[in-house]
Design a protein around this nucleic acid. Structure first.
Lengths: 197, 197
DNA sequence: CGAGCGCTTGATTGAGTTCAAAAATCGTGG
DNA sequence: CCACGATTTTTGAACTCAATCAAGCGCTCG
């Protein structure tokens, strides 16, 4: 049932089968149907989620009702609202499913327990956090400096598979442009013979 | 000599004077004159820096030679290049001093040692990393959704003191707009009687 | 005191938005 | 399996926010 999660942890931290058994005692999974919401703005939850199957997104909605995708979370990724999970404040993002998905619900206790049972886990966790920061710095840098076209090219290079699984208007939302603009960017790229789309 | 660093660590982690003494053995500080570079793009360094005094910035330079500020680092903040420090890759950012500054040079060993001597430090570190991620998500969200004016208002609210210490063109660079645009935004705000600038 | 840098202002341009509508694709029930 | 409605993508035209280019002002610091 937690097979994918086990494989993930074991490739990252060399946790034994028995250790895995122990640390995931009581841990539950949850299936989320396409288009249904896992976490909504304003909620205060003590959970964050590991995606075993499917694809989710975290996004915000501005005053004009427009959505802005903060993160896509396919298999083997984490998703949640840090505001809520780490700081016990109301969630500022909405998390919902782009495809039928299955997630593992993880609370703070899990992190503590696992850190005690398997100290390598803490190291791994710190590296993962640093990696995420590095990744976000890159995204900020692109938003500061690059055109819509450059950002799109960066996206398809970084997430070739997502390009096929995510509707175009959501990618536009992730890039910070309108669906119409992304359509035009793609048209322009196609004209200049980017068959690779 | 490390007074400011000691106070920082003690307010965050309740490390004793003796512990501090032990973990900072061999740790060196460095003074950086205004406008001089602490870390340049392409360097591979095993250090990250805690700012005891002054103000630094991390920024990138794009193909057209334009600078984009990723981070301002005043007193009691950390600055460095994660690519280099955490992943031993060439630095992608430049770090230089906006004011005459003094930093503590910290290497990976410090983090390991400190984590062993004072386990609370690890907890604190993880929280700080999560806090930074939360903060960067907020910035991405603003870049995706807000106008130049909204981003500027957010900036002066979040960093009232920096607004006075940082030249205007650098704030523009942080916000992802040109100095000319920021000048106009300020003019517009002044007209609408935002005396509070 | 003058050269250079930072800030402002104006005129023009341009990337991307908005609004509107057509074309293509998808999902679902008969 | 097809048809129909809904959603997504594309296309067009007008518009807007911010960028660019260019000039002038004011400060400071060497």
């Amino acid at each position: 049932m937690l097979q994918a999660f086990k494989e993930y942890l074991q490739t990252k931290t060399s946790i034994s089968d028995e250790q895995f058994q122990r640390i995931t005692e009581g841990v539950v999974t949850r299936k989320i149907k396409k288009d249904s919401v896992l976490l909504k703005k304003g909620d205060v939850t003590s959970y964050t989620f590991f995606v075993m199957k499917g694809l989710l997104r975290a996004y915000s909605i501005d005053e004009q009702g427009k959505e802005h995708v903060i993160q896509f979370a396919p298999e083997n990724n984490w998703v949640g609202d840090r505001n809520s999970f780490c700081f016990n404040e109301p969630a500022i993002f909405i998390v919902d499913a782009i495809e039928d998905s299955e997630v593992v619900c993880i609370d703070q206790h899990f992190f503590e327990r696992t850190g005690q049972h398997a100290p390598q886990f803490n190291r791994f966790n710190v590296i993962a956090l640093n990696n995420l920061i590095r990744f976000m710095q890159r995204r900020v840098n692109l938003l500061l400096s690059a055109t819509a076209e450059q950002r799109y090219l960066d996206f398809i290079e970084l997430y070739p598979s997502l390009t096929l699984r995510v509707p175009q208007w959501m990618i536009a939302s992730y890039l910070g442009i309108t669906p119409e603009s992304l359509s035009r960017v793609r048209k322009e790229l196609a004209k200049r013979n980017f068959k690779s789309i």
